[in-house]
Computed example of a mutant assay.
Amino acid sequence: MKSSDLDYKLPESLIAQYPAEKRDASRLMIIDRNSGRIQLDVFENMPDYLNPGDCLALNDTRVIRARLHGRKETGGAVEIFLLQELSDGGWSALVRPSAKVRAGAKILFPAGLEAVVAETLPGGKRRVFFNGEQVISRLEEAGEIPLPPYIHRKESDHNDTTRYQTVYSKHPGAVAAPTAGLHFTENVFRKLAAAGIEKAYLTLHVGYGTFKPIQADRLSDHQVDQEEYIFPEETAQKLNDTRHCGHKVVAVGTTCTRVLESCYSDGKYSGGNGSTDLYIFPPYTFRAVDVLQTNFHLPRSSLLALVCAFAGRELLMDAYHLAIKEQFRFYSYGDVMLIR
């Protein structure tokens, strides 16, 4: 399959720059893979499309304030975008302007946070070391929530600190939100519980590579970045019980999908911690996911490739064209689909 098969034309006006006023007021598209039927609704009614005994798998990662604006000791402005904490206590990061920041340069940030920029890493990244400990908690004062590159704002919006997090976010470490989960509210969770629909949690710290486009002509020549995950034994057992009772596992987002597929073998889910670079594209036989909830994704992205593999390219492209016709909102702050 070629990367050009994942192309579609999207009016720029449909790229959501802000979230819906209410999380669960996002529009919902329901796709039935067997019949090809497509329905339109709002997310508040999502529980109506699942069955008692089904179980949601939710990614409870929390987005850190990974974007930092500081100055060199000489006064020059520097931006550091943290990508991943490294085993030596440092971080891999994007530094701008990297060419003007020599190895060993000290960068000063608000709240007394300081960093030393070290050597260049593969892919143009830099290794960065901070003064002191508990860096993630100190970022709460010194850093900013890193919004996706296609969100263009004249001014920052303080609501992003809450709206670019799921209501169940718990474990800090992501630099991008698991956006399929942004639509959930306590009201929706109450409806799910009343309908007998279960939920279980896993953690995958979403990396900046989630925005990396597929540049190869063939999908098979693309690679995705490693991302760390925690798949609790309790969650694995709950999902095994769900399947054993004849019910369905609902992956909330492509991040959950990659963890579930990575941790499923010999007919069962197995808990554990690790990292995955699983890249799912057509044709692919899903073993661990029965239903997928996901937002609308960028053309030529690994996320869109995964959803095409799950729904089938022709049906999914029909759905995307309908979404455009119906003025659905796209990407991270946009609307959502449920593929059954």
Rank of each mutant, 00 (worst) to 15 (best):
Y164N: 05
H158E: 15
T161Q: 01
L121Y: 05
F130S: 06
G143S: 13
F130A: 02
K125D: 12
E155C: 01
V135D: 05
G123P: 10
Y150R: 09
K154T: 02
N131I: 07
K170H: 15
G132M: 12
A142Q: 11
S169D: 12
L139H: 04
A142V: 11
Q134I: 08
R127S: 11
Y168T: 13
K170G: 01
V135T: 15
Q134K: 15
E141G: 12
Q165Y: 01
G132A: 05
L139D: 05
S156M: 04
I151R: 04
G143R: 10
F130K: 02
A142N: 03
V167A: 05
P122N: 09
R126E: 13
R127H: 14
H152R: 15
I151P: 07
E144Y: 00
G123H: 08
V128S: 00
T161N: 09
N131E: 08
V128F: 04
E133A: 14
E155M: 06
T161M: 06
H171S: 14
G124C: 08
N159T: 14
D160G: 09
R127Q: 14
E155Y: 03
G132T: 04
T166H: 03
E144W: 02
H152P: 12
Q165C: 03
N131S: 11
H152L: 14
P146I: 04
V167L: 01
E140H: 06
D160N: 00
Y164W: 05
P148G: 00
G124W: 09
Y164P: 09
E141S: 15
K125P: 00
K170L: 14
L147V: 11
H158C: 06
F129M: 02
Y150C: 01
V135R: 09
Q134S: 15
H152I: 15
E133I: 09
P149Y: 06
S169G: 03
K125S: 12
G124S: 13
A142M: 11
E141D: 14
R163K: 14
P146F: 03
V135C: 08
Y150P: 03
I151A: 04
P146D: 10
P149Q: 10
E155V: 03
T120V: 14
D157L: 00
L121D: 05
G124K: 07
P149G: 07
P122S: 00
L147D: 12
F129Y: 15
